[in-house]
Write a protein that binds this DNA or RNA. Sequence first.
DNA 1: GTGAAAGCGCTAACAT
DNA 2: ATGTTAGCGCTTTCAC
Lengths: 320, 320
Amino acid sequence: MAVTIRDVAHASGVHVSTVSRTFSAPHMVNAETRTRVLAVAEKLGYRPNRAARALTTGRTGNLGLIVADLANPFFPPLIKAAQAAARGQDYHLFVADTDENPVEEQDLVQAFSKQVDGIVLCSPRSSNKALEKLAETIPFVLVNRRMRGVPTVVMDVAQGARAAMGHLAGLGHRRVALVAGPAGSWTSGEIRRAVAEVPGLDTLVIGPNAPTEEGGAAVAERVAEAGVTGVLAYNDLVAIGLIEALEERGVSVPGDVSVIGVDDSVTGRLHRPKLTTVAMPAADAGRMAVDLLIKSMSAATVLETHLVVRESTAPPKGIP
Amino acid sequence: MAVTIRDVAHASGVHVSTVSRTFSAPHMVNAETRTRVLAVAEKLGYRPNRAARALTTGRTGNLGLIVADLANPFFPPLIKAAQAAARGQDYHLFVADTDENPVEEQDLVQAFSKQVDGIVLCSPRSSNKALEKLAETIPFVLVNRRMRGVPTVVMDVAQGARAAMGHLAGLGHRRVALVAGPAGSWTSGEIRRAVAEVPGLDTLVIGPNAPTEEGGAAVAERVAEAGVTGVLAYNDLVAIGLIEALEERGVSVPGDVSVIGVDDSVTGRLHRPKLTTVAMPAADAGRMAVDLLIKSMSAATVLETHLVVRESTAPPKGIP
DNA sequence: GTGAAAGCGCTAACAT
DNA sequence: ATGTTAGCGCTTTCAC
């Protein structure tokens, strides 16, 4: 068994509460007692048990971040930024991956719920109903999913999608395809809705598809046979998978078919041909989500009051 | 405040211990009491508090995994495999990123230590001495770092590095460079040692360097001026950064300089020219590390006994 | 099969 | 400034 607060108390001849205070409210304990306790603690290798502390204080000092797929290059920049924001406010950030599985997603929220103070849920795949239930359990912030009553950070992908389709139209394309993302994805829905509004384009929607290279490769056949000359893919991975599979079939990109991705990931930048893509402010989203989470967790927002001096007050009589 | 075991006990007219048993030892409670308790718990939305449970049982059901940089494509496959292995044995896996910072690394181990049952520490950057101290706190398994007394999974990168240098020698290269990795990296040390043994090659060692594209790009000048015709880079990211920076300077790859990476990451496969690289069994490492960790945590390994029948036993007298 | 009670490691009033 | 006491939510003897 590890060394506890009690061992330290014994060894330094003070009470447990004094040891406790030495760590959580140092200014409340006599300087020389403090140094003695600290020395003993150091010698014994004492480490406060944060889980036990959380039991009384209700605060763990941890945040959770849940993503659909860590291997998707969209997420690392978001995670890194979230982490930096968390560290800057003295929180630790723990990450988990749902493998695109809604059940696992809900399970992970539960698993996190008593060990973190709040959760950032990125691109959730669960239904709104399921998310609403979870929201009662623990504070969370959603990224790329809009939901009534839950703090949210979304990226205006609709605007990007319209720009992408506009770019294709401007190049002279008329018959194009949208290779959509997975079923539970809010982003994919946004893109679908957005492209429907772009005039002058005959848009075939293909999907839902897995948000991976495999997902893109799997629809290459249909894209090649559909007679489209332009494609907007759900994300860079899908775009790349599609491009590679098209070229295997002798369809050249962008010679025969133009392809646009979404995310502006490192992967897309390194691919050849260099991928035209819709840039997503992932790092900003990560940072803001954490800031929002921490803000939403603070017990109450304190609004300033100010004194309005009118005519009901005056110096007491006798004071000129 | 969330609903606790006590609320459920009250509402279902039994004692807390019965509710506790309903969840942690269902067979010890009467079937109809159990269904009643379960129904009430469901209605109230009761969730066992795993942190509180951990306080008495000493078991959290969580594992931690710490990596130097989530954005390095080497890690996601490792993490995914580790996660699958953990889920398969009913553990949750929480991931954290140290940003290549040894202090942060130690800090994270501490932060994890009371909320997980064990930690997989991948490519640690801390000193052996620091790691030894941490190893007393909590069970952990090291990946790509060898240390006395700590379970370890390492990849035989030395053999891969020799093969890489052999490949260059076979192609006729004589003056080559090793672009090494960061200071704390065991892998980088292994590679350095390995390449020193390869005969017939005049090897310039450049480093330590950051294990990123920037790290590779930063040494392009030196590589170009060193008059080497072949390079082994610490990893794929460094190799790619180097290649891009060389080509910007008009040095063609592999026309003027051959470059080899390490990791066989997705990123390397998608880059053009397609990267020659040393494949690392990252997924295997992730899976094995988790298996090893769980095995090392089990209180004791139980060895089978068997009965050896010799001559000291016989039927009782009177039984023919 | 279920209840009573102690205790996991820690913090937070309340005393002194 | 320090000690006392009562829990936080849960499990686990020990009785009955």
